[in-house]
Write a protein that binds this DNA or RNA. Structure first.
Lengths: 291, 291
DNA sequence: GTGAAAGCGCAATAGTCTTTGCATGCAAGT
DNA sequence: ACTTGCATGCAAAGACTATTGCGCTTTCAC
Protein backbone atom coordinates (compact mmCIF):
# COMPACT_ATOMS: atom_id res chain seq x y z
CA UNK A 1 0.00 0.00 0.00
CA UNK A 2 0.89 3.58 -0.45
CA UNK A 3 0.49 4.19 3.24
CA UNK A 4 3.48 2.05 3.92
CA UNK A 5 5.70 4.28 1.84
CA UNK A 6 6.01 7.00 4.40
CA UNK A 7 6.12 4.53 7.22
CA UNK A 8 9.12 3.01 5.59
CA UNK A 9 10.65 6.42 5.42
CA UNK A 10 10.17 6.94 9.14
CA UNK A 11 11.26 3.47 10.09
CA UNK A 12 14.32 3.64 7.94
CA UNK A 13 15.51 6.79 9.65
CA UNK A 14 14.68 5.63 13.14
CA UNK A 15 16.45 2.35 12.56
CA UNK A 16 19.68 4.23 12.15
CA UNK A 17 19.59 5.64 15.64
CA UNK A 18 22.48 4.08 17.53
CA UNK A 19 21.84 1.73 20.42
CA UNK A 20 22.80 4.23 23.06
CA UNK A 21 20.25 6.70 21.84
CA UNK A 22 20.55 10.31 20.80
CA UNK A 23 21.42 13.38 22.81
CA UNK A 24 18.70 15.95 23.28
CA UNK A 25 19.76 18.27 20.48
CA UNK A 26 20.42 15.43 18.11
CA UNK A 27 16.93 14.17 18.84
CA UNK A 28 15.60 17.61 17.99
CA UNK A 29 17.34 17.42 14.64
CA UNK A 30 15.86 13.99 13.98
CA UNK A 31 12.41 15.33 14.74
CA UNK A 32 12.77 17.99 12.13
CA UNK A 33 14.01 15.43 9.63
CA UNK A 34 10.91 13.36 10.21
CA UNK A 35 8.42 16.16 10.33
CA UNK A 36 9.75 18.29 7.51
CA UNK A 37 11.37 15.92 5.08
CA UNK A 38 10.81 18.23 2.15
CA UNK A 39 12.61 21.13 3.64
CA UNK A 40 15.34 18.91 4.99
CA UNK A 41 15.93 17.30 1.65
CA UNK A 42 16.36 20.63 -0.10
CA UNK A 43 17.75 22.90 2.54
CA UNK A 44 21.21 23.42 3.92
CA UNK A 45 22.51 22.25 7.24
CA UNK A 46 22.27 25.78 8.54
CA UNK A 47 18.60 26.02 7.70
CA UNK A 48 17.89 22.73 9.40
CA UNK A 49 19.85 23.83 12.44
CA UNK A 50 17.70 26.88 12.83
CA UNK A 51 14.53 24.85 12.55
CA UNK A 52 15.73 22.47 15.21
CA UNK A 53 17.01 25.23 17.43
CA UNK A 54 20.56 23.93 17.44
CA UNK A 55 23.93 24.92 16.11
CA UNK A 56 25.04 24.00 12.60
CA UNK A 57 27.70 21.75 14.01
CA UNK A 58 25.11 19.66 15.77
CA UNK A 59 23.44 18.90 12.48
CA UNK A 60 26.66 17.55 11.06
CA UNK A 61 27.32 15.54 14.18
CA UNK A 62 23.83 14.12 14.19
CA UNK A 63 24.30 12.98 10.63
CA UNK A 64 27.48 11.26 11.69
CA UNK A 65 25.80 9.74 14.72
CA UNK A 66 23.22 8.24 12.37
CA UNK A 67 25.97 6.50 10.51
CA UNK A 68 26.55 8.87 7.62
CA UNK A 69 29.73 10.54 6.56
CA UNK A 70 28.17 13.94 7.07
CA UNK A 71 25.18 16.08 6.27
CA UNK A 72 25.43 15.82 2.48
CA UNK A 73 25.46 12.03 2.69
CA UNK A 74 22.41 11.97 4.90
CA UNK A 75 20.65 14.48 2.71
CA UNK A 76 21.22 12.44 -0.38
CA UNK A 77 19.70 9.34 1.16
CA UNK A 78 16.88 11.47 2.51
CA UNK A 79 16.09 12.79 -0.93
CA UNK A 80 15.93 9.39 -2.49
CA UNK A 81 13.72 7.97 0.26
CA UNK A 82 11.45 10.93 0.50
CA UNK A 83 11.01 11.34 -3.21
CA UNK A 84 10.19 7.72 -3.72
CA UNK A 85 7.68 7.85 -0.90
CA UNK A 86 6.05 10.74 -2.70
CA UNK A 87 5.92 9.28 -6.13
CA UNK A 88 4.85 5.88 -4.88
CA UNK A 89 1.22 6.73 -5.42
CA UNK A 90 -0.49 7.42 -8.67
CA UNK A 91 0.82 10.53 -10.16
CA UNK A 92 -1.84 12.58 -11.79
CA UNK A 93 -1.89 16.21 -11.45
CA UNK A 94 -3.16 19.34 -12.70
CA UNK A 95 -1.33 22.22 -11.54
CA UNK A 96 -1.55 25.84 -12.31
CA UNK A 97 -1.05 29.03 -10.48
CA UNK A 98 1.59 31.61 -10.18
CA UNK A 99 4.12 31.94 -7.44
CA UNK A 100 2.30 34.32 -5.15
CA UNK A 101 2.75 33.58 -1.45
CA UNK A 102 -0.89 32.69 -0.99
CA UNK A 103 -0.85 30.26 -3.90
CA UNK A 104 2.27 28.66 -2.59
CA UNK A 105 0.71 28.32 0.80
CA UNK A 106 -2.32 26.55 -0.62
CA UNK A 107 -0.14 24.23 -2.64
CA UNK A 108 1.94 23.43 0.38
CA UNK A 109 -1.12 22.64 2.45
CA UNK A 110 -2.30 20.37 -0.29
CA UNK A 111 1.01 18.58 -0.21
CA UNK A 112 0.91 18.26 3.54
CA UNK A 113 -2.57 16.89 3.50
CA UNK A 114 -1.60 14.34 0.90
CA UNK A 115 1.28 13.31 3.11
CA UNK A 116 -0.99 13.12 6.12
CA UNK A 117 -3.48 11.07 4.21
CA UNK A 118 -0.88 8.48 3.44
CA UNK A 119 0.86 8.49 6.74
CA UNK A 120 -2.11 8.54 9.03
CA UNK A 121 -2.86 5.39 10.92
CA UNK A 122 -6.61 5.16 11.31
CA UNK A 123 -6.20 2.83 14.24
CA UNK A 124 -4.81 5.64 16.31
CA UNK A 125 -7.69 7.96 15.56
CA UNK A 126 -10.11 5.16 16.32
CA UNK A 127 -8.43 4.55 19.66
CA UNK A 128 -8.62 8.21 20.57
CA UNK A 129 -12.22 8.56 19.47
CA UNK A 130 -13.23 5.57 21.56
CA UNK A 131 -11.32 6.87 24.54
CA UNK A 132 -13.07 10.22 24.28
CA UNK A 133 -16.42 8.54 23.89
CA UNK A 134 -15.83 6.45 26.99
CA UNK A 135 -14.40 9.25 29.06
CA UNK A 136 -16.23 11.17 31.71
CA UNK A 137 -14.69 14.30 30.34
CA UNK A 138 -12.00 15.28 27.86
CA UNK A 139 -9.60 18.17 28.22
CA UNK A 140 -7.72 19.59 25.26
CA UNK A 141 -4.54 21.48 25.93
CA UNK A 142 -3.53 23.74 23.09
CA UNK A 143 -1.56 26.91 23.44
CA UNK A 144 -0.47 29.54 20.97
CA UNK A 145 -1.93 29.34 17.51
CA UNK A 146 -2.69 25.63 18.00
CA UNK A 147 -5.47 26.80 20.24
CA UNK A 148 -7.51 27.20 17.09
CA UNK A 149 -7.36 23.50 16.37
CA UNK A 150 -8.18 22.66 19.96
CA UNK A 151 -11.18 24.94 19.92
CA UNK A 152 -12.52 23.45 16.74
CA UNK A 153 -12.16 19.97 18.15
CA UNK A 154 -13.83 20.87 21.41
CA UNK A 155 -16.63 22.73 19.73
CA UNK A 156 -17.57 19.99 17.33
CA UNK A 157 -17.12 17.21 19.84
CA UNK A 158 -19.41 19.12 22.14
CA UNK A 159 -21.92 19.35 19.35
CA UNK A 160 -21.68 15.61 18.96
CA UNK A 161 -22.70 15.18 22.55
CA UNK A 162 -19.45 14.74 24.43
CA UNK A 163 -17.99 16.75 27.25
CA UNK A 164 -14.88 18.09 25.62
CA UNK A 165 -13.29 21.29 26.77
CA UNK A 166 -10.38 23.21 25.32
CA UNK A 167 -8.01 24.97 27.67
CA UNK A 168 -6.41 27.78 25.77
CA UNK A 169 -6.24 30.81 27.97
CA UNK A 170 -3.07 30.46 29.92
CA UNK A 171 -1.40 28.55 32.67
CA UNK A 172 -3.74 29.51 35.48
CA UNK A 173 -6.78 28.00 33.84
CA UNK A 174 -4.69 25.05 32.77
CA UNK A 175 -3.59 24.40 36.34
CA UNK A 176 -7.15 24.52 37.64
CA UNK A 177 -8.42 22.20 34.96
CA UNK A 178 -5.63 19.70 35.32
CA UNK A 179 -6.23 19.64 39.05
CA UNK A 180 -9.70 18.29 38.37
CA UNK A 181 -8.59 15.54 36.03
CA UNK A 182 -9.17 12.02 37.21
CA UNK A 183 -8.99 8.41 36.19
CA UNK A 184 -11.97 8.36 33.89
CA UNK A 185 -10.78 11.38 31.93
CA UNK A 186 -8.87 11.94 28.72
CA UNK A 187 -6.35 14.64 27.92
CA UNK A 188 -5.34 15.58 24.40
CA UNK A 189 -2.29 17.77 24.00
CA UNK A 190 -2.02 19.66 20.74
CA UNK A 191 1.30 21.19 19.90
CA UNK A 192 3.01 22.19 16.68
CA UNK A 193 6.39 23.65 16.01
CA UNK A 194 7.13 24.98 19.43
CA UNK A 195 6.35 22.88 22.42
CA UNK A 196 5.16 24.86 25.41
CA UNK A 197 6.53 23.94 28.78
CA UNK A 198 3.10 23.97 30.36
CA UNK A 199 1.75 21.51 27.79
CA UNK A 200 4.32 18.90 28.73
CA UNK A 201 3.68 19.49 32.40
CA UNK A 202 -0.07 19.11 32.01
CA UNK A 203 0.36 15.89 30.07
CA UNK A 204 2.59 14.39 32.72
CA UNK A 205 0.34 15.36 35.59
CA UNK A 206 -2.71 13.96 33.83
CA UNK A 207 -0.87 10.73 33.15
CA UNK A 208 0.17 10.47 36.78
CA UNK A 209 -3.42 10.93 37.84
CA UNK A 210 -4.46 7.97 35.78
CA UNK A 211 -6.03 9.76 32.82
CA UNK A 212 -5.49 8.59 29.29
CA UNK A 213 -3.24 11.01 27.46
CA UNK A 214 -2.91 11.55 23.70
CA UNK A 215 -0.86 13.98 21.68
CA UNK A 216 -1.23 15.66 18.31
CA UNK A 217 2.04 17.16 17.17
CA UNK A 218 4.30 17.76 14.21
CA UNK A 219 7.39 16.32 15.80
CA UNK A 220 7.55 13.48 18.26
CA UNK A 221 9.34 15.19 21.07
CA UNK A 222 10.47 12.61 23.61
CA UNK A 223 9.00 14.65 26.43
CA UNK A 224 5.52 14.54 25.00
CA UNK A 225 5.73 11.05 23.55
CA UNK A 226 6.66 9.71 26.95
CA UNK A 227 3.55 11.02 28.59
CA UNK A 228 1.21 10.10 25.75
CA UNK A 229 -0.38 6.75 25.09
CA UNK A 230 -0.55 7.51 21.39
CA UNK A 231 0.98 10.27 19.31
CA UNK A 232 -0.58 11.56 16.12
CA UNK A 233 2.03 13.04 13.84
CA UNK A 234 0.90 15.88 11.63
CA UNK A 235 2.89 17.72 8.98
CA UNK A 236 2.81 21.40 9.80
CA UNK A 237 5.34 22.87 7.46
CA UNK A 238 4.28 26.26 6.17
CA UNK A 239 5.79 28.46 3.51
CA UNK A 240 6.37 31.51 5.68
CA UNK A 241 7.40 31.83 9.29
CA UNK A 242 4.28 30.21 10.59
CA UNK A 243 3.61 26.53 10.90
CA UNK A 244 0.50 25.55 9.01
CA UNK A 245 -2.55 24.57 11.02
CA UNK A 246 -4.35 23.11 8.05
CA UNK A 247 -3.28 19.51 8.44
CA UNK A 248 -3.86 19.71 12.18
CA UNK A 249 -7.34 20.95 11.52
CA UNK A 250 -7.92 18.04 9.17
CA UNK A 251 -6.97 15.65 11.95
CA UNK A 252 -9.34 17.38 14.33
CA UNK A 253 -12.05 17.05 11.74
CA UNK A 254 -11.29 13.37 11.19
CA UNK A 255 -11.29 12.75 14.91
CA UNK A 256 -14.68 14.32 15.39
CA UNK A 257 -16.06 12.41 12.45
CA UNK A 258 -14.80 9.20 13.97
CA UNK A 259 -16.21 10.22 17.32
CA UNK A 260 -19.60 10.87 15.79
CA UNK A 261 -19.58 7.34 14.45
CA UNK A 262 -19.00 5.70 17.82
CA UNK A 263 -22.52 6.28 19.02
CA UNK A 264 -24.56 7.68 16.12
CA UNK A 265 -27.77 7.85 18.10
CA UNK A 266 -26.22 9.97 20.79
CA UNK A 267 -24.67 12.29 18.24
CA UNK A 268 -27.86 12.71 16.24
CA UNK A 269 -29.84 13.49 19.35
CA UNK A 270 -27.28 16.01 20.48
CA UNK A 271 -27.19 17.78 17.17
CA UNK A 272 -30.92 17.87 16.88
CA UNK A 273 -31.09 19.46 20.29
CA UNK A 274 -28.54 22.03 19.29
CA UNK A 275 -30.39 22.91 16.11
CA UNK A 276 -33.53 23.37 18.12
CA UNK A 277 -31.74 25.79 20.35
CA UNK A 278 -30.38 27.77 17.46
CA UNK A 279 -33.85 28.28 16.11
CA UNK A 280 -35.17 29.16 19.51
CA UNK A 281 -32.55 31.79 20.07
CA UNK A 282 -32.90 33.10 16.55
CA UNK A 283 -29.19 32.95 15.98
CA UNK A 284 -29.20 31.99 12.35
CA UNK A 285 -29.65 34.21 9.40
CA UNK A 286 -30.70 31.55 6.94
CA UNK A 287 -32.38 28.66 8.63
CA UNK A 288 -31.42 25.04 7.98
CA UNK A 289 -34.68 24.03 6.33
CA UNK A 290 -35.92 27.33 5.14
CA UNK A 291 -38.27 27.56 8.13
CA UNK B 1 -2.73 10.61 -15.79
CA UNK B 2 0.94 11.04 -15.51
CA UNK B 3 1.27 12.43 -18.99
CA UNK B 4 -1.05 15.24 -18.21
CA UNK B 5 0.91 16.33 -15.21
CA UNK B 6 4.12 16.18 -17.16
CA UNK B 7 2.57 18.17 -19.96
CA UNK B 8 1.83 20.99 -17.61
CA UNK B 9 5.30 20.92 -16.31
CA UNK B 10 6.71 20.86 -19.84
CA UNK B 11 4.49 23.64 -21.03
CA UNK B 12 5.45 25.88 -18.22
CA UNK B 13 9.12 25.46 -18.91
CA UNK B 14 8.84 25.71 -22.69
CA UNK B 15 6.80 28.85 -22.39
CA UNK B 16 9.84 30.55 -20.96
CA UNK B 17 11.94 29.97 -24.03
CA UNK B 18 12.64 33.38 -25.62
CA UNK B 19 11.23 34.21 -29.04
CA UNK B 20 14.48 33.86 -30.89
CA UNK B 21 14.91 30.31 -29.71
CA UNK B 22 17.73 28.55 -27.92
CA UNK B 23 21.27 27.77 -29.05
CA UNK B 24 22.20 24.11 -29.46
CA UNK B 25 23.86 23.66 -26.09
CA UNK B 26 21.17 25.58 -24.27
CA UNK B 27 18.61 23.33 -25.91
CA UNK B 28 20.54 20.34 -24.61
CA UNK B 29 20.30 21.73 -21.10
CA UNK B 30 16.58 22.27 -21.48
CA UNK B 31 16.24 18.71 -22.67
CA UNK B 32 17.81 17.42 -19.50
CA UNK B 33 15.61 19.67 -17.39
CA UNK B 34 12.55 18.18 -19.02
CA UNK B 35 13.66 14.58 -19.04
CA UNK B 36 15.22 14.45 -15.59
CA UNK B 37 13.38 16.99 -13.45
CA UNK B 38 14.07 15.11 -10.25
CA UNK B 39 17.78 15.13 -10.70
CA UNK B 40 17.70 18.70 -11.89
CA UNK B 41 15.77 19.88 -8.88
CA UNK B 42 18.29 18.37 -6.49
CA UNK B 43 21.58 18.49 -8.32
CA UNK B 44 24.14 21.22 -8.79
CA UNK B 45 24.76 23.15 -11.95
CA UNK B 46 27.91 21.13 -12.51
CA UNK B 47 26.01 17.85 -12.35
CA UNK B 48 23.46 19.09 -14.81
CA UNK B 49 26.21 20.32 -17.10
CA UNK B 50 27.74 16.89 -17.22
CA UNK B 51 24.40 15.29 -17.99
CA UNK B 52 23.85 17.70 -20.85
CA UNK B 53 27.41 17.43 -22.07
CA UNK B 54 28.07 21.11 -21.72
CA UNK B 55 30.14 23.40 -19.58
CA UNK B 56 28.92 24.67 -16.23
CA UNK B 57 28.79 28.18 -17.54
CA UNK B 58 26.30 27.16 -20.17
CA UNK B 59 23.91 25.98 -17.49
CA UNK B 60 24.01 29.35 -15.81
CA UNK B 61 23.54 31.12 -19.13
CA UNK B 62 20.65 28.90 -20.08
CA UNK B 63 18.95 29.71 -16.81
CA UNK B 64 19.39 33.38 -17.57
CA UNK B 65 18.15 32.91 -21.12
CA UNK B 66 14.99 31.41 -19.66
CA UNK B 67 14.41 34.55 -17.70
CA UNK B 68 15.83 33.59 -14.32
CA UNK B 69 18.52 35.34 -12.34
CA UNK B 70 20.65 32.24 -12.44
CA UNK B 71 20.70 28.54 -11.81
CA UNK B 72 19.56 28.68 -8.17
CA UNK B 73 16.52 30.72 -9.14
CA UNK B 74 15.56 28.30 -11.88
CA UNK B 75 16.10 25.37 -9.59
CA UNK B 76 13.85 26.76 -6.93
CA UNK B 77 10.96 27.19 -9.34
CA UNK B 78 11.70 23.80 -10.75
CA UNK B 79 11.39 22.21 -7.34
CA UNK B 80 8.09 23.82 -6.55
CA UNK B 81 6.59 22.89 -9.89
CA UNK B 82 7.91 19.41 -9.99
CA UNK B 83 7.09 18.57 -6.41
CA UNK B 84 3.56 19.82 -6.57
CA UNK B 85 2.95 18.03 -9.82
CA UNK B 86 3.94 14.89 -8.01
CA UNK B 87 2.03 15.21 -4.81
CA UNK B 88 -1.11 16.82 -6.10
CA UNK B 89 -1.64 13.54 -7.85
CA UNK B 90 -2.28 11.87 -4.56
CA UNK B 91 -5.54 13.72 -4.59
CA UNK B 92 -6.91 11.70 -7.41
CA UNK B 93 -6.28 8.52 -5.48
CA UNK B 94 -9.21 6.39 -4.44
CA UNK B 95 -12.39 8.27 -4.21
CA UNK B 96 -14.18 5.29 -2.86
CA UNK B 97 -16.42 5.59 0.14
CA UNK B 98 -14.64 2.82 1.93
CA UNK B 99 -12.60 3.01 5.06
CA UNK B 100 -13.19 4.34 8.52
CA UNK B 101 -15.01 7.62 9.05
CA UNK B 102 -11.76 9.33 9.92
CA UNK B 103 -10.10 8.14 6.73
CA UNK B 104 -13.07 9.32 4.69
CA UNK B 105 -12.91 12.67 6.41
CA UNK B 106 -9.26 13.08 5.53
CA UNK B 107 -9.92 12.15 1.93
CA UNK B 108 -12.78 14.57 1.72
CA UNK B 109 -10.63 17.34 3.08
CA UNK B 110 -7.97 16.49 0.58
CA UNK B 111 -10.50 16.77 -2.22
CA UNK B 112 -11.80 20.04 -0.91
CA UNK B 113 -8.36 21.47 -0.73
CA UNK B 114 -7.58 20.37 -4.26
CA UNK B 115 -10.75 22.09 -5.39
CA UNK B 116 -9.88 25.20 -3.47
CA UNK B 117 -6.44 25.17 -4.97
CA UNK B 118 -7.87 25.09 -8.46
CA UNK B 119 -10.58 27.65 -7.94
CA UNK B 120 -8.95 30.15 -5.70
CA UNK B 121 -8.39 33.54 -7.16
CA UNK B 122 -5.15 34.82 -5.73
CA UNK B 123 -6.08 38.33 -6.66
CA UNK B 124 -8.74 38.30 -4.00
CA UNK B 125 -6.36 37.13 -1.31
CA UNK B 126 -3.87 39.73 -2.42
CA UNK B 127 -6.50 42.44 -2.18
CA UNK B 128 -7.48 41.39 1.30
CA UNK B 129 -3.90 41.11 2.48
CA UNK B 130 -3.13 44.57 1.25
CA UNK B 131 -6.24 45.95 2.82
CA UNK B 132 -5.30 44.45 6.16
CA UNK B 133 -1.76 45.73 5.85
CA UNK B 134 -3.01 49.22 5.15
CA UNK B 135 -5.69 49.18 7.80
CA UNK B 136 -5.47 50.82 11.16
CA UNK B 137 -7.04 47.73 12.64
CA UNK B 138 -8.73 44.57 11.42
CA UNK B 139 -11.64 42.87 13.07
CA UNK B 140 -12.52 39.27 12.33
CA UNK B 141 -16.04 38.15 13.00
CA UNK B 142 -16.35 34.41 13.35
CA UNK B 143 -18.92 32.66 15.45
CA UNK B 144 -19.54 29.05 16.24
CA UNK B 145 -16.91 26.58 15.15
CA UNK B 146 -15.63 29.03 12.53
CA UNK B 147 -14.21 30.93 15.45
CA UNK B 148 -11.27 28.56 15.26
CA UNK B 149 -10.35 29.81 11.82
CA UNK B 150 -10.76 33.39 12.89
CA UNK B 151 -8.54 32.88 15.91
CA UNK B 152 -5.83 31.29 13.86
CA UNK B 153 -5.93 34.16 11.42
CA UNK B 154 -5.84 36.78 14.14
CA UNK B 155 -3.08 35.05 16.05
CA UNK B 156 -0.74 34.68 13.12
CA UNK B 157 -1.48 38.09 11.69
CA UNK B 158 -0.68 39.51 15.11
CA UNK B 159 2.59 37.64 15.08
CA UNK B 160 3.30 39.19 11.70
CA UNK B 161 2.97 42.61 13.23
CA UNK B 162 -0.57 43.68 12.40
CA UNK B 163 -3.39 44.68 14.65
CA UNK B 164 -5.89 41.95 13.93
CA UNK B 165 -8.46 40.92 16.48
CA UNK B 166 -10.94 38.07 16.38
CA UNK B 167 -14.32 38.60 17.94
CA UNK B 168 -15.65 35.23 18.92
CA UNK B 169 -17.28 35.45 22.29
CA UNK B 170 -20.79 36.52 21.64
CA UNK B 171 -22.92 39.36 20.53
CA UNK B 172 -22.07 41.72 23.35
CA UNK B 173 -18.40 41.85 22.53
CA UNK B 174 -19.26 42.00 18.86
CA UNK B 175 -21.46 45.02 19.38
CA UNK B 176 -18.79 46.84 21.31
CA UNK B 177 -16.14 46.13 18.76
CA UNK B 178 -18.24 47.08 15.78
CA UNK B 179 -19.10 50.33 17.50
CA UNK B 180 -15.44 51.24 17.38
CA UNK B 181 -14.94 50.44 13.72
CA UNK B 182 -14.10 53.36 11.49
CA UNK B 183 -13.07 54.30 8.00
CA UNK B 184 -9.52 53.10 8.15
CA UNK B 185 -10.51 49.65 9.40
CA UNK B 186 -11.13 46.29 7.83
CA UNK B 187 -13.68 43.68 8.80
CA UNK B 188 -13.47 40.06 7.75
CA UNK B 189 -16.54 37.92 8.26
CA UNK B 190 -15.95 34.18 8.39
CA UNK B 191 -18.95 31.96 8.09
CA UNK B 192 -19.55 28.41 6.94
CA UNK B 193 -22.68 26.39 6.63
CA UNK B 194 -24.76 28.34 9.06
CA UNK B 195 -24.79 32.06 8.80
CA UNK B 196 -25.25 33.80 12.07
CA UNK B 197 -27.56 36.74 12.19
CA UNK B 198 -25.09 38.81 14.12
CA UNK B 199 -22.38 38.25 11.51
CA UNK B 200 -24.51 39.77 8.77
CA UNK B 201 -25.46 42.64 10.99
CA UNK B 202 -21.86 43.36 11.89
CA UNK B 203 -20.81 43.30 8.25
CA UNK B 204 -23.50 45.75 7.26
CA UNK B 205 -22.77 48.14 10.09
CA UNK B 206 -19.06 48.10 9.31
CA UNK B 207 -19.78 48.77 5.66
CA UNK B 208 -22.02 51.67 6.54
CA UNK B 209 -19.29 53.13 8.71
CA UNK B 210 -16.91 53.16 5.77
CA UNK B 211 -14.78 50.16 6.63
CA UNK B 212 -13.67 47.70 4.00
CA UNK B 213 -15.53 44.43 4.42
CA UNK B 214 -14.54 40.98 3.20
CA UNK B 215 -16.14 37.60 3.64
CA UNK B 216 -14.94 34.03 3.76
CA UNK B 217 -17.76 31.61 3.31
CA UNK B 218 -18.83 28.33 1.76
CA UNK B 219 -21.91 29.66 0.04
CA UNK B 220 -22.36 33.14 -1.25
CA UNK B 221 -25.38 34.16 0.68
CA UNK B 222 -26.81 37.32 -0.84
CA UNK B 223 -26.97 38.95 2.55
CA UNK B 224 -23.26 38.65 3.13
CA UNK B 225 -22.17 39.15 -0.46
CA UNK B 226 -24.00 42.43 -0.52
CA UNK B 227 -22.09 43.82 2.41
CA UNK B 228 -18.73 42.51 1.31
CA UNK B 229 -16.32 44.03 -1.15
CA UNK B 230 -14.93 40.60 -1.98
CA UNK B 231 -16.12 37.12 -1.12
CA UNK B 232 -13.78 34.17 -0.78
CA UNK B 233 -15.58 30.93 -1.48
CA UNK B 234 -14.35 27.92 0.41
CA UNK B 235 -15.53 24.32 0.14
CA UNK B 236 -16.57 23.17 3.59
CA UNK B 237 -18.42 19.95 3.02
CA UNK B 238 -17.63 17.34 5.64
CA UNK B 239 -18.56 13.68 5.76
CA UNK B 240 -20.53 13.85 8.99
CA UNK B 241 -22.85 16.51 10.33
CA UNK B 242 -20.15 19.06 10.68
CA UNK B 243 -18.85 21.32 8.01
CA UNK B 244 -15.13 20.94 7.56
CA UNK B 245 -12.94 23.78 8.69
CA UNK B 246 -9.89 22.44 6.94
CA UNK B 247 -10.20 24.37 3.70
CA UNK B 248 -11.12 27.49 5.63
CA UNK B 249 -8.00 27.10 7.68
CA UNK B 250 -5.97 26.74 4.51
CA UNK B 251 -7.34 30.05 3.31
CA UNK B 252 -6.48 31.68 6.62
CA UNK B 253 -3.00 30.32 6.30
CA UNK B 254 -2.66 31.55 2.73
CA UNK B 255 -3.93 34.95 3.75
CA UNK B 256 -1.40 35.30 6.53
CA UNK B 257 1.36 34.15 4.25
CA UNK B 258 0.39 36.79 1.74
CA UNK B 259 0.17 39.36 4.50
CA UNK B 260 3.64 38.48 5.70
CA UNK B 261 4.91 39.20 2.20
CA UNK B 262 3.48 42.70 2.03
CA UNK B 263 6.09 44.17 4.34
CA UNK B 264 8.69 41.50 5.04
CA UNK B 265 10.83 43.74 7.20
CA UNK B 266 7.94 44.54 9.50
CA UNK B 267 7.00 40.89 9.79
CA UNK B 268 10.52 39.73 10.48
CA UNK B 269 10.98 42.30 13.16
CA UNK B 270 7.72 41.40 14.79
CA UNK B 271 8.48 37.72 14.81
CA UNK B 272 11.95 38.23 16.13
CA UNK B 273 10.53 40.26 18.96
CA UNK B 274 8.02 37.54 19.73
CA UNK B 275 10.68 34.86 19.76
CA UNK B 276 12.73 36.92 22.13
CA UNK B 277 9.75 37.18 24.45
CA UNK B 278 9.12 33.46 24.36
CA UNK B 279 12.65 32.81 25.52
CA UNK B 280 12.43 35.51 28.13
CA UNK B 281 9.28 34.11 29.62
CA UNK B 282 10.60 30.56 29.41
CA UNK B 283 7.45 29.38 27.70
CA UNK B 284 9.02 26.82 25.45
CA UNK B 285 9.99 23.33 26.30
CA UNK B 286 12.75 23.02 23.77
CA UNK B 287 14.31 26.38 23.26
CA UNK B 288 15.07 27.80 19.84
CA UNK B 289 18.75 28.07 20.58
CA UNK B 290 20.94 27.61 23.57
CA UNK B 291 22.76 30.85 22.85
C1' DG C 1 38.23 34.17 -48.92
C1' DT C 2 37.78 37.39 -45.42
C1' DG C 3 35.52 39.86 -41.62
C1' DA C 4 32.16 40.06 -38.06
C1' DA C 5 29.37 38.14 -34.69
C1' DA C 6 27.91 34.87 -31.63
C1' DG C 7 28.29 30.45 -29.05
C1' DC C 8 30.85 28.24 -25.85
C1' DG C 9 34.62 26.60 -22.81
C1' DC C 10 38.22 27.95 -19.56
C1' DA C 11 39.57 29.89 -15.49
C1' DA C 12 39.45 33.31 -11.92
C1' DT C 13 36.54 35.23 -8.27
C1' DA C 14 33.31 35.76 -4.84
C1' DG C 15 30.23 33.62 -2.03
C1' DT C 16 28.32 29.76 0.60
C1' DC C 17 28.29 25.50 2.93
C1' DT C 18 30.28 21.72 5.70
C1' DT C 19 33.42 20.04 8.76
C1' DT C 20 36.44 20.04 12.70
C1' DG C 21 39.34 21.76 16.57
C1' DC C 22 38.71 24.06 20.71
C1' DA C 23 36.45 25.96 24.71
C1' DT C 24 32.67 26.01 27.81
C1' DG C 25 29.12 24.51 30.69
C1' DC C 26 26.40 20.89 32.65
C1' DA C 27 25.82 16.51 35.00
C1' DA C 28 27.21 12.34 37.15
C1' DG C 29 30.06 9.96 40.08
C1' DT C 30 33.75 9.77 43.59
C1' DA D 1 33.01 19.66 46.81
C1' DC D 2 35.97 18.13 43.05
C1' DT D 3 36.84 15.80 38.98
C1' DT D 4 35.82 13.72 34.77
C1' DG D 5 33.35 13.05 30.64
C1' DC D 6 30.22 14.50 27.33
C1' DA D 7 27.24 17.50 24.72
C1' DT D 8 27.12 21.67 22.45
C1' DG D 9 28.23 26.30 20.67
C1' DC D 10 31.74 29.12 18.38
C1' DA D 11 34.83 30.10 14.88
C1' DA D 12 38.28 29.02 11.49
C1' DA D 13 39.58 26.18 7.71
C1' DG D 14 38.78 23.79 3.72
C1' DA D 15 35.85 22.43 -0.13
C1' DC D 16 32.53 23.32 -3.30
C1' DT D 17 29.32 26.16 -6.28
C1' DA D 18 27.83 29.78 -9.25
C1' DT D 19 28.88 33.56 -11.96
C1' DT D 20 31.40 36.40 -15.19
C1' DG D 21 35.27 38.18 -18.05
C1' DC D 22 38.11 36.61 -21.70
C1' DG D 23 39.49 34.37 -25.70
C1' DC D 24 39.04 30.59 -29.06
C1' DT D 25 36.27 28.60 -32.61
C1' DT D 26 32.56 28.12 -35.55
C1' DT D 27 29.27 30.13 -38.68
C1' DC D 28 27.26 33.21 -41.83
C1' DA D 29 27.35 37.18 -44.99
C1' DC D 30 29.52 39.78 -48.43
Amino acid sequence: MTERATDRFDDWLRARVPARGLRPKAAAVLEVLLSQPRRASYGSAAELAQLAGVNVATVTRTAQALGFAGWPALQQELRARYMSSLSAGQVAAEHSGTGSPSARSLRRDLDSLALLNRRMDEEVLLTIAEAVAAARRTVIVADGSYAAVGLALAHNAGLAGYDVRAVTSGDAELANTVAAIGERDVLIAISFWRLYESTVLAANVARARGARVFAVTDAASPALAEAAEQVVMVPAEGVAFFPSLTAGMAVAQALVTQLAAVDPARTSASIEAAEGMWSKFGLLHRRPSGG
